[in-house]
């Protein structure tokens, strides 16, 4: 039951206060507060070096915070990290598979780490092969699988202990669009089972679809948080006009745009203009004598929120 202070505390999968991670002089994560509710899909977005991975590693009880307070699944990782990890599923950016042994052996070997009997491991491995749609490949060497299949195997392996919470670092990066779709289908299935998910991704449209709540990080700080809809509404206008130029646009190119909108970003290949009404703004652009090679009008997305808040596109 929700109280006026938010959901009850025992419903929190992660409770982090002033979490800081330092590597020597460098502060990767700087006193962030982070909450993940049980059963939600929580997205961690940010450019490279924003502190996402360090945050993931702390929340998944692999590394210890330099300072701050952290509770994961109601337990203190300072004292019981190994026990908490027994209840987590962790998918790293790299697959970390044993490519020289069979697909099914990758699953059983990993399941054994959680202390299950051999027969139980075989049963769970069979279940996961089905989940990952890899039954046909069970006795192939993992190294013979395609990139997308290896990714699915890595995800399936992390689920072999029926985790209460799953961490996925860039689960679809490097996959072709079709395979990305298959992987995100699996994640949606997990979400429907009320498994708590913590995800980092570069794909904003996927984050918009999958995540209940999102945190955007930059330089070790949280710069925005909320539902995808809230983030869009609060940080950017409803529509976006993009002006594409053959030559790199400069501040000078953008000068005539002042007045059409207070909010615009000048990028390497285009100028992005945040407006309430795209059609009107486009007309005004032409009226002021600007001649972009191409002009597009679209609804604003998380990608734009990201650009506004960090001054960078995700590709950078």
């Amino acid at each position: 039951m929700d109280t006026e202070f938010g959901p009850p505390l025992d419903d929190m999968a992660v409770l982090g206060r002033d979490l800081t991670k330092r590597f020597g002089e460098f502060t990767a994560v700087d006193a962030i507060n982070i909450d993940v509710y049980s059963g939600e899909c929580f997205g961690l977005l940010g450019p490279n070096g924003a502190g996402k991975s360090s945050t993931m590693r702390m929340l998944s009880c692999i590394s210890q915070p330099t300072s701050g307070a952290l509770t994961v699944l109601g337990t203190d990782p300072r004292r019981e990290a190994a026990r908490i990890r027994g209840r987590l599923g962790i998918v790293h950016q790299e697959n970390n598979l044993d490519l020289d042994i069979k697909v099914v052996e990758n699953l059983t070997t990993y399941a054994r780490y959680f202390g299950f009997s051999r027969s139980e491991c075989r049963r769970r491995a069979a279940e996961m092969l089905e989940f990952a749609q890899l039954e046909q490949k069970a006795v192939s060497k993992a190294g013979e699988l395609s990139g997308g299949m290896q990714r699915r195997l890595a995800i399936a392996r992390a689920l072999v202990n029926s985790p209460e919470m799953v961490f996925l670092d860039e689960p679809t990066t490097g996959l072709d669009p079709q395979m990305r779709h298959v992987v995100w289908q699996r994640l949606l299935e997990l979400k429907q089972r009320r498994t708590t998910l913590v995800v980092t991704t570069h794909y904003m449209e996927e984050a918009e679809q999958l995540c209940d709540r999102i945190v955007i990080m930059d330089h070790g700080h949280i710069v925005a948080e909320g539902t995808p809809q809230m983030l869009i509404k609060e940080n950017v206008s409803q529509e976006v006009v993009e002006l594409w130029f053959s030559e790199t646009p400069t501040e000078e190119t953008a000068a005539p745009l002042k007045g059409i909108s207070e909010q615009f970003d000048v990028l390497a290949d285009r100028i992005v203009l945040y407006v309430a009404n795209g059609e009107e703004a486009a007309k005004e652009v032409h009226r002021r004598g600007l001649t972009p090679e191409r002009l597009t009008i679209r609804r604003s997305t998380l990608e734009d929120v990201f650009l506004r808040l960090t001054g960078r596109t995700l590709a950078e």
Partner: peptide, 14 residues
């Protein structure tokens, strides 16, 4: 290169 240790590190194995 193999990442076997990283995989173990994601489990209760100490």
């Amino acid at each position: 290169w193999v990442g076997g240790i990283k995989a173990m590190r994601s489990t209760p194995v100490r």
